[in-house]
Every structure is written in structure tokens, then in C-alpha cells.
Amino acid sequence: MTIPTTAPTTPIRLVLVDDHRMFRSGVKTELVPGVTEVVGEAPDVDAAITVIRQTTPDVVLLDVHLPGGNGNGGVDVIAGCRGVQTAAGQPVRFLALSVSDAAEDVIAVIRAGARGYVTKTISGNDLMSAIRRVADGDAVFSPRLAGFVLDAFGTTAGEVAEADEELDRLSAREREVMRLIARGYQYKEVAKELFISIKTVETHVSSVLRKLQLSSRHELTAWAYGRHIL
């Protein structure tokens, strides 16, 4: 993924929520000034909710494991900021950023409402484009998250949705997109592979995200524990 050649007219307003100060400062050095602007930082759940409500940022970079709140970390932050809108009338969007790639953590924070999930080892360039995507209201899927989705929706067993609207299954196209992301393809490579536009890829990914968040058939957390039983 590339950094946009033309920076947006207004920088993306960011809040960093992470209990490790070293990591927060590390992320700040990787952000491109002008494209993003850090308007707030918070080390725990309660401070995060306060800061987000005060600053109403475009995007919140959210650690999954945080002290405070009800003990659910990032999930509590998202729950506490429900309904908060930016000055432009958009909802505040969350990008989960974590060292943990355990299925329970990933699924929990996505189900709570995060628009994407990346691991902390992500490169600066990829992080910037992930932030841009989330700010535009698109979803950001790491290969691992795509793998979780394919696992959770049982697509490896060959279940395919009849209609795109069906919440409990992926459509054939969505499955293809998820598979390519799991294979390490970037969005533009996915688009090229499937002969569709990047925008269409983004639409499919957002649709998968919506299904992941709204589907009720899969008790996804329970699945996360039981998925490897042969």
C-alpha cells in the first residue's frame, strides 16, 4: 500500500490509546505529519473515553488490552464511545492495533465495532494506508483476520451465501476476496486478480466486516475456542 501522493486537505485527526507510552511515541514517529494529526492520547479505558468524547477524532488507534473499565480493554472503550460523532457528522472510527493475534481478542473487538484489526508489527506505510481506509469508512483486514473470518463462517466447508444480504454466510465473491487477503495480497492486487476496482474490493471487505459484526448464527467467541477440534 502506498502513501497518497496528495495529502487530504484536512489531516486525519487521531487519538492513540495504548497503555505503553513507548509504543505510543513509536507510532507517532511513524505517522506522516500533514496526513494525520494526533489530537489526543490515553493510557487506559476511562481516560480514553474522556479524551475521545472531548476531541471527537476521525480515527482512534486502539490497543486491545487496556487497564481500567470493566476489564475488557478496547471493547469497553468502543462501548463507552458509542454514538460519538466527529465535527463532520461521521461516527468515530476505531482501528484495533494489538500484539495479540488470538482469535478471541480479534473477534471481540471487531464485534464491538472496530473497523479493522492490524498487528503492532505493521510497517509505517501500511499503518498509514490502514488509517486512511478506516477514516474513509472502509474496513482493514490483515491476512490473519481474513483467515479468522474464513474459519468463522465455515467457508472452508464450502458454505456459500445465496444472496449477498445473507448475514450468516459469505458470498462467493467475498470469500474470494478474503482468501486473497489471507494469501497476502494487498487491496490493489486483489482488485487486479479478480478484475474488479479497488473500490469494489473495499465494498466487499466492508460487507464482510458488517457480517462479522452482525451475524448472530455464529457464536463467534465460542467458535474461537472450539474451532480446532477435528
Binding site: 474464513l150 472452508t156 464450502g158 482468501r179 494469501r183
Partner: peptide, 15 residues
């Protein structure tokens, strides 16, 4: 370098 392995009812695919 990415490796993706899909093990399902239709067989195994590895990329």
C-alpha cells in the same frame, strides 16, 4: 512472505 493454508472438505490448498 505470506503463507496461507486452507484445509477444508474439498481438499487442502496452500499458497
Amino acid at each position: 512472505v505470506s503463507t496461507y493454508v486452507e484445509i477444508g472438505a474439498q481438499g487442502v490448498e496452500c499458497f
